[in-house]
Write a protein that binds this DNA or RNA. Structure first.
Length: 637
DNA sequence: GGGCCCGCAGGG
DNA sequence: CCCTGCGGGCCC
């Protein structure tokens, strides 16, 4: 069948839905491999060079990346394990199936939208819940980014959810009622604001406005809830979805699933205005729309930001259940977007709603994107509903925030609107006790945070045998098994010894401390994410090589580990069980071995070095030694 | 899990 | 000062 990849628009032929074009080192679908290669050859949109590369990758994935020697393909070697078999590309937004295979979000959605509920790679079942709400695999994003770049990525998401203000630290007088004291959170909105930007500040919050951390608000930062998001200035209102002033513009919006007309495509989304609801009876919100929305108040503020081309900060909340881009927990800062158009249409509830087209324009890559760079100007998506739109507004003047071709970044082209508010009173002055409470996560460098992204939150080591749960979090297989060992999936119940009640399903929450998602389905038969495992393994090898360059003067040329592996006929992945070695924690030793664990572990001697590594910069070397250091820690523990 | 209740901040 | 609001805890 033919397949046009929505990410890259290339057309590919792939085998039957379930065919095994490429599998973990033991392709049993040679016919399909041939078919896929023919398809690449027949593809007229590709240059010879591109075809060669794709062919190589296809073969390469089947054989375990042993063959590539070209330096240009060093990165591919690491990332090749994570290629999407549908489009044979590196996933922009990796999704992992319960069977442990990785795909582009868009390819996956296209696949499942055709009522294919089996894995394109192994025919394993895809649960409806996964098909309807695929979660981006954060560890795979990190792995791909690391494989693609050796640069330090400053914007990488902190993997830890912040919880900065503890109840006991809030001022006593803020609790005006007994109830508020009891619940703790009710008055959290009186918690301190940590950044020094005025409330009507537009655009990213920079390091200079972050007196404590001196980092600013980073793309991908996650807070426990709207209250804490507010404290970091990303989005101030703790109930309302839009922050703004009708005469002045809107500074930020929250996507949290409150309006069913919202439509999220990650780099762009359609947002619905506020209002039109019956809030009589002291309600704060109401699912049902009773009136038409108008371009007034916050809706007008958004329209001003549209006309002026201001950057609008966007946070996504876990409450947005229909979006694959929403975090599975907490509230996440996703960077700035511009509102390119706004209009009105008849919404799903048959009343008019205000509509806004947001398009991302941030200098940092989005949290779900494997890209190593931020946005470039992109052409506007085709919006079907515009045909029936009324009151259309498009920007006429040059945008205030725009892409500078010379500097290759987004910046203010006109001076940002002058703040009408003073920075005031709420600015914290006493932050004493809190500073020392700084967690190690906050002190990590960008590179270290990347490493953290490849670490299992249970054992805190870099994952050896990763399993990705339905919520998109990944763990060592052995850790997951230990964490849920001895638990059954249903509890038999009897009623006074008379008759059996219906068996009760036991909820197994994701071990990620902040994730509340039930992953019992993923635990029943955890499948190793071999793509992720291979990439992590390659990154480790690369880092080992690099650190050799630092430690030893170059002596030995052009004998990459990949080559050696090939000649020694050693399987790609060392010790897939993650057991049996003396460097294992006792917990890991307790766990059972995983399937296919017959390969021997391969030691990589320190004499191994590669010519290509001689070119590495000092920066890279030092960051790789960080990796090396962590790897050693990993081994020692 | 759904409905209810309510404090709070900010706009107007 | 009143109104609005894509929260969040609690109770059922």
């Amino acid at each position: 069948m033919e397949w046009d990849c929505p990410d890259c628009s290339s057309i590919y032929a792939v085998g039957e839905p379930s065919t095994n074009i490429v599998s973990d080192g033991q392709s049993n679908g040679s016919d399909n491999l041939i078919a896929a290669i023919r398809a690449i050859e027949a593809d007229e949109s590709l240059t010879e060079q591109q075809k060669n590369k794709k062919r190589q990758l296809l073969m390469n994935k089947g054989k375990g990346v042993a063959d590539l020697d070209d330096d240009d393909h060093m990165k591919d070697k690491a990332a090749a394990h994570l290629y999407c078999v549908i489009c044979i590309m590196l996933p922009e937004r990796p999704i992992t199936t319960p069977c442990g295979h990785n795909f582009c979000l868009k390819c996956f959605q296209k696949w499942t939208s055709r009522k294919n509920l089996t894995c394109p790679e192994c025919r394993g079942p895809i649960p409806r819940s996964v098909a309807s709400q695929p979660r981006i695999n954060a560890a795979a994003v990190v792995a791909i980014r690391m494989a693609k770049t050796s640069k330090l990525i400053s914007s990488e998401a902190l993997k830890k959810v912040h919880h900065f203000v503890h109840n006991q630290e809030r001022p006593d007088k803020a609790f005006t009622t007994e109830r508020a004291k009891k619940t703790g959170k009710a008055n959290a909105c009186s918690g301190k604001i940590f950044v020094t930007v005025p409330p009507d500040h537009f655009g990213p919050i920079l390091a200079e406005n972050d007196p404590d951390r001196k980092k600013g608000v980073l793309v991908g930062e996650v807070w426990e809830d709207r209250m804490e998001c507010r404290q970091w200035g990303a989005h101030l209102p703790h109930v309302a979805g839009i922050a703004g002033q009708s005469e002045y513009g809107a500074q930020s919006v929250a996507l949290s699933g409150g309006y069913e007309d919202d439509e999220d495509h990650g780099e762009w989304f359609l947002y619905t205005g506020s209002g039109g609801r019956d809030l009589s009876g002291n309600k704060r919100t109401n699912k049902y729309q009773a009136f038409d929305q108008k371009f007034d108040k916050m809706n007008e503020a958004l329209r001003v930001s549209c006309k002026k081309g201001y950057p609008v900060r966007v946070v996504r909340s876990h409450k947005e259940k229909r979006s694959s881009y929403a975090p599975s927990e907490g509230v996440r800062y996703d960077g700035v977007y511009r509102i390119e158009k706004c209009w009105r249409k008849i919404g799903k509830q048959e009343h008019k709603v205000c509509r806004y087209l947001f398009v991302r324009c941030d200098n940092e890559p989005a949290p779900w994107s494997s890209d190593e760079h931020g946005d470039r100007p992109r052409s506007l998506p085709v919006i079907e509903e515009l045909k029936a739109a009324t009151d259309l507004t498009e920007r006429k003047e040059d945008p205030s925030w725009d892409y500078d071709e010379e500097e290759s970044c987004w910046k203010w082209k006109r001076s940002p609107p002058l703040s009408r508010r003073t920075m005031d009173t709420r600015n914290p002055e006493d932050k004493k006790g809190k500073r020392k409470a700084k967690t190690s996560a906050e002190n990590l460098s960008g590179r270290d945070r990347l490493l953290k992204g490849l670490s299992c939150t249970i054992c805190r080591n870099i994952m050896r045998i990763p399993v990705t749960a339905a919520c998109g979090h990944s763990f060592c297989k052995s850790c997951l098994e230990v964490a849920f060992s001895g638990q059954t999936f249903v509890r038999e119940r009897t009623c006074a010894g008379r008759r059996n009640l219906r068996a009760q399903k036991i909820v197994m929450k994701c071990p990620d401390p902040q994730c509340q998602i039930d992953i019992s389905e993923s635990i029943k038969n955890p499948q190793v994410n071999r793509g992720l495992m291979g990439t992590i393994e390659s990154l480790k090898l690369e880092a080992e090589d690099d650190s050799k360059v630092v430690q030893n003067p170059p002596e030995n040329k052009a004998k990459s580990v990949y080559k050696r592996r090939k000649t020694n006929n050693v399987p790609l992945l060392s010790n897939p069980d993650g057991v049996g070695k003396d460097d294992k924690s006792s917990e890991e030793q307790k766990s059972k071995s995983v399937s296919g664990g017959t390969e021997d572990e391969m030691e990589v001697e320190s004499s191994t070095t590669s010519e290509s590594n001689l070119k590495t910069t000092a920066t890279k070397d030092s960051s790789s030694s960080t990796l090396q250091a962590q790897l050693n820690d990993d081994d020692l523990e």
